[in-house]
Amino acid sequence: MEGCKAGDRKMQELLYKQTAAKMLAVCMRYARDRMEAEDVLQMGYIKIFQKIKEYRGDGSFEGWIRRVMVNTAIESYRKNLRSLNVVEIDEAYEQPSTGFDFGTLGMQDLMKVIQKLADGYRMVFNMYVIEGYSHKEIGETLGISEGASKSQLSRARAILKEEIIKMEGFGYATYTG
């Protein structure tokens, strides 16, 4: 880490090699696909090496890197939002009445269903469920109301549940390969 602060190229590469896989998993959750995720990952690491002097050692270093990465992903989403101007369809999703077996679901399956979500839903779901932001923080960060954050979260959950059931119904075994 000290080497990274001093701008040592070898140390920066080492840091990248040690953390990139985890960070790509973070980026994947926020992106639509792998390509987008890797773009965010690249931007995130450039930011990390620029800002590494600002890291004062409060909290774990990995946590700090993760925060930078998440912020980069959110920033990227907001930029895309402006350029794409995505209109989200507000359909009412009903709670699926049937339950499902979680034990058989792997991380990659969950990643797939998250990436299928509309961008806004994916952002709110990631930020609230995985990163632990409050609805207030999400609202402030994404420029939406607290209520909108809450309703988007519940819709996101409903969509995810449906998707998971679909996945299981269409032969879950094929997904795990």
């Binding site: 590469e13 990248y16 090699k17 990139a20 896989a21 985890k22 790509l24 998993a25 973070v26 994947m28 959750r29 792998r34 995720a37 890797e38 990952l41 690249q42 690491y45 450039i46 090496f49 979680f102 679901l105 792997g106 991380m107 969950l110 990643m111 998250i114 779901f125 469920v129 995985i130």
Partner: peptide, 21 residues
């Protein structure tokens, strides 16, 4: 369920990202 699944999730970067970084 999601939290646990992604807590230690890792995805190996496919492209040679380091050189571009």
């Amino acid at each position: 369920l999601f939290k646990d699944a992604f807590a230690e999730a890792e995805v190996t970067p496919s492209r040679d990202l380091w050189s571009s970084i």
